[in-house]
Design a binder for these strands. Sequence first.
DNA 1: GGTGGGATTAGCT
DNA 2: GCTAATCCCACCA
Length: 217
Amino acid sequence: MFANSILTMSPSHRIEALPDTFYHGSTVAIAKRLLGVYLVANSATGTTAGRIVETEAYLSKNDPACHAAHGETKRNRAMFGAPGTAYIYLIYGMYHCFNVVTRPAGCGEAVLIRALEPVSGIELMQKRRKKEKLTDLCSGPGKLVQAQGIAIALNGTSLDGPKLYLTRTLNGLPTGKRRPGEKIVTSTRIGIRTGADLPLRFYIGSSPFISRSISRA
DNA sequence: GGTGGGATTAGCT
DNA sequence: GCTAATCCCACCA
């Protein structure tokens, strides 16, 4: 089964991270463009990978829900880094959320990754999540961070490193982009109090792996 | 120096 | 549907 093939992959495997041009355009455009892209995580316990199926955009202007809305702080500093930087933070004292910084340094815009389709390292994800069902592994921002073993220490690092990276090219799998017939559905964002009416959540409509939260579209 | 809220989840009713 | 678990930070005193 191809899901385990990456685990036995040669250590000399070359990372094909996303090109700089991937981050051209608006944060909304990038949030949509990220649908279908692979997120790969390497740790001492093994490698996992998932295909992004749900994202949310957080903007620097007229978006009160964005962490950067009140300026740079110690907590949100990574958000003001270069495009392709990981912004990881603790939420509700228990879970972490993983974001991709999208705009040039100083802007403070990012895309929250809300759900992945598990594609590799399934057994490791099941072990970390203590869940068997594939739809329970990465169907929420806190869940996918747990399943991928993404450490808070990776906050502020560039998403082209050996421990955590984004790519369209993954070990014989189809190119990491939307496939024919997969349509982007737009809705309001999940779980926020302010800016809740903005249409900034995007997901692959046919995917069974998106978060189960009420869409409130 | 104290306090309250938040881009969540799991488990129970 | 409701709530507990749990912590960083912004804000107010």
